[in-house]
């Protein structure tokens, strides 16, 4: 059996795209060195073309032609391409290889950039959403037209009340007051942070509205101070460095 006969059946399978693995590798290697088998492969493909004709009959739907011609019209001008026989010319080959490499690198970089942009866009969208929520909370807390209701035990006359929410690590403080008595002229209430050690720290001046409500949001405070209690005094409008007695309201942390 000649070497060509040995490959004959594999050649038919190869033409059909059915040959795989080692058999495919061996045949492709043989095709490069053989003068006879490539010709037989072309003939086998010719046989395949004949078999295709056994299906002839159906014609494509009429709109298919229109779609193709529209696609053709959208395509950029046809470029002349080098014939496939010219692949061995060394300089263009290296140039093409270099270009292909550059294209791969650029395409990867581009993909990375696109990924980063997409990530940043996602982060930005998340931050904007958080900001919107924070603004909504703040707007509700500080709205002048907000309805402020303090719930107490039934039949208890309204009492002045204050609620401080303090986050030590972030030195953030929100204070809400209700039913505060009207102030004398040129006076203001001052909120004090009473630390576990040291002197009281001013934590904001406020004047209640006509309903006795007031809000203090994030007054300037030193960072990391541990609070034992919060207190309110009446001070001059400009505020004081130290509380003026008496303390009219006080509350300790739970």
């Amino acid at each position: 059996m000649s070497v060509h006969e040995q490959f004959a059946e594999d050649l038919a399978l190869y033409a059909l795209g059915a040959l795989q693995g080692e058999e495919q590798v061996a045949l492709e290697k043989h095709l490069k060195d053989c003068a006879v088998c490539p010709r037989e492969l072309e003939q086998l493909r010719g046989d395949m073309a004949l078999l295709a004709l056994s299906t002839a009959g159906p014609t494509p739907p009429r709109p298919a032609r229109q779609r193709l011609m529209e696609a053709v019209a959208r395509e950029p001008r046809v470029r002349a391409v080098p014939t496939r026989r010219a692949w061995w010319v060394p300089v263009p080959w290296f140039a093409a290889a270099a270009l292909a490499l550059v294209a791969v690198v650029l395409s990867r970089q581009n993909a990375n950039q696109e990924q980063r942009i997409s990530l940043l866009q996602q982060q930005s969208a998340e931050q904007q959403a958080q900001l919107r929520r924070a603004r909504d909370v703040l707007a509700t807390l500080t709205a002048t037209d907000a309805m402020r209701v303090t719930l107490v035990a039934a039949k208890t006359p309204p009492q002045p009340q204050g609620k401080a929410i303090y986050v030590r690590n972030r030195a953030s403080l929100i204070f809400l007051a209700s039913n505060m008595p009207m102030l004398p002229a040129q006076k203001a209430y001052e909120l004090w942070l009473i630390p576990t050690s040291g002197a009281p720290i001013p934590a904001g001046l406020f004047k209640p509205d006509a309903h006795g409500s007031a809000t203090v949001i994030d007054p300037p405070l030193p960072a990391g101070v541990e609070a034992k209690a919060f207190a309110i005094t009446v001070e001059p409008e400009a505020g004081s460095a130290a509380p003026t007695l008496p303390i009219i309201m006080v509350g300790a942390g739970e």
Partner: peptide
């Protein structure tokens, strides 16, 4: 090759049924 769309249409008319039917 020179960008003639009519030639493409003629080629389609000639061979589209072979391509489509297979």
């Amino acid at each position: 090759r020179s960008g003639d769309e009519n030639a493409m249409a003629l080629l389609y008319d000639r061979y589209s049924s072979i391509v489509y039917s297979v």
